[in-house]
Design a protein around this nucleic acid. Sequence first.
DNA 1: AGGCAGGTTCTTA
DNA 2: TAAGAACCTGCC
Length: 274
Amino acid sequence: MVIEIKDDFDLAKIADSGQCFRFNRCKNDAGAYSVAAFNKHVIVKELGNDRYEFSCSQEEYDSFWKNYFDMELSYSDIRARIDEKSDPYLYSAATFGQGIRILKQDPWEMLISFIISQRKNIPAIKASIEKICALAGNVIDEGEEFGKIYSFPTPESLAKLSMEELSSCSLGYRDKYVHQAAMDVASGAVKLNEWSELSDKELMEKLLELYGVGVKVANCEILFGYHRLDAFPKDVWINRVLDTRYPDGFDFDRYAPFNGVMQQYLFFYSRGTM
DNA sequence: AGGCAGGTTCTTA
DNA sequence: TAAGAACCTGCC
């Protein structure tokens, strides 16, 4: 089906924004992207004039992908909160990053993904996640162009993997973190879905109790897994920006409750320019 | 060849 | 409570 999208929506920027790891440009089809999430897979292709082709039914778009891409929220309105004169750097970053949206992803998949992300670059993170999916996920789609697409494993199937199998996914020292998290969620000791009811503070405290989860990974989980758009993960890139561009501090009060969106613009801009 | 990559844990004072 | 070292692995 083909749909017209008027608000910010740039597949290339979203794919490269570091929030998702199973969102890839199709090798033999420029402008088309493969997206795997929640046991579903879709190819999205930009047609021009704000039109996009989704390789799914209208019904699946309405019931799933529309929400996944957070289409009810206007990101151009969020960008409009930025005043060029009071913060020219953020304004430039947001202009550069226009088209980025924060996806509504699976808290479980995000937790494991960001545990894996520590001290890894994005290609390495993606490679590990794909190995895990191929090893413990199910085939959810198959096509000549993109081959077999696997779902992200359930907590149960990931918990069943031996440490040897986990190690074969190039997790390095993170293998024990992933194993423990899978055990905790599979056993029911950790109920990620119920945690969505917690306050920001309580949610952070719960996440920090998990083995292998520190402040940065917890904030990524809160922003990308729980879609709480005020969370502001600080990684080396963001810290570099804050140190060099905001020596007197970033104005978090001004952009609440959307500081996480600003973080994405700053992150994307810093990676493209520094 | 040595250092580093979107951090966290463990150890030590 | 805080700083420093160690940690897997792959790629410059």
